[in-house]
Amino acid sequence: MAVILQMTYQKKLGLPNFSSHACSVSVSVEIPDVSVAAQESSKLYSLLQAAVDNEIQQVGYLPDATSYGMHQNGNGHPPNNGNGQNRSSNDQWKCTEGQRGFILRIVADNQLDKNTVEDMAQQLFGIGVKECDKMQASQLIEELLEKTGKGNGRRRPQWRSREPARA
């Protein structure tokens, strides 16, 4: 009676920037009887391992860790700071949508002059409000809260609902 011997060899290797790649090769062979199974298995293992090792050396595309996902996503669209929104170019803010909304809400709630906020950003960072990145916007929000008497001197990132925590 013929015996079918099936074997798969798979190898997964880590790559830089939290990537990984894997290669898998399978084979089925017919052997005359089970008495040769061990010998054939050993041969097949060596064969499959050599095949996988040969292929997996081809790393293929690797993203640049300093830019991939930061300035352009995989679809060629501009970044959205993780909030899934894109705005028209004449109203583009560099910070997140949550930060933008919070800054505007502080201005509206406290009837602040938008020029005052613009001046504050210029004074603190030498740029306009819309040019503030996430870090600068965070700092600006803290300043605005202090100015309006709502700052508490400790960090409370109120533009998001997540738990504030000291790193």
Partner: peptide, 8 residues
């Protein structure tokens, strides 16, 4: 450039 800044 920043002082005790909360970021995510």
């Amino acid at each position: 450039e920043a002082v005790e800044v909360a970021v995510d």
